[in-house]
Computed example of a mutant assay.
Amino acid sequence: MKLDEDTRRRLQALGEKRDRSPHWLMKRAVMEFLEREEALEQEQQEDLARWERFCLTGEALPQASVAEWLDGFGQAATPFSRR
């Protein structure tokens, strides 16, 4: 796939502003895309595994337990909290 002229022009302009080549910008964009998409894929696989485990065992956390656990966040004193 080839880039259209407008995209090439934009890459060139941004590269000049950032003191980077268009190739560097494209490589970085592809790497960020891959990292984001691979993380999403991993999360989806983990969700599927959790769902399959639930279907097999029926084990789940009650909503009240999760709510109580979440309510505990921010309750502990930190060096920056006011007492």
Rank of each mutant, 00 (worst) to 15 (best):
Q63W: 07
L48V: 05
G15F: 00
L48S: 09
P62F: 03
A60K: 08
R10I: 07
S81D: 13
M26G: 00
D19L: 07
E41R: 11
E16C: 02
E35S: 11
T78G: 14
A13N: 14
W69A: 08
D6L: 09
G72C: 01
A29L: 11
M26S: 07
Q45V: 07
L3C: 04
L56M: 12
T78D: 09
T57M: 06
P62S: 10
L48A: 13
L48P: 02
G15C: 03
M1S: 11
L34N: 12
D6V: 07
K2H: 09
G15Y: 00
R18K: 15
R9Y: 05
F33M: 13
E68N: 06
Q45Y: 03
V66F: 07
K17Y: 06
E38P: 00
L34I: 13
T78W: 04
V30D: 13
R28E: 15
K27H: 13
Q42D: 14
R10L: 10
F33I: 04
K2N: 13
E41I: 04
L11F: 06
E37G: 02
P79R: 04
R8D: 11
H23R: 14
R9S: 08
P79M: 04
R28L: 11
D4V: 02
D19V: 02
M1D: 10
F33T: 12
E37M: 05
L34Y: 07
A64E: 15
Q75M: 07
E52T: 04
K2F: 04
A29G: 15
R8L: 14
D19A: 09
V30A: 13
E37T: 07
E16A: 10
S21N: 10
E38S: 07
L56Y: 10
Q63R: 09
L70I: 04
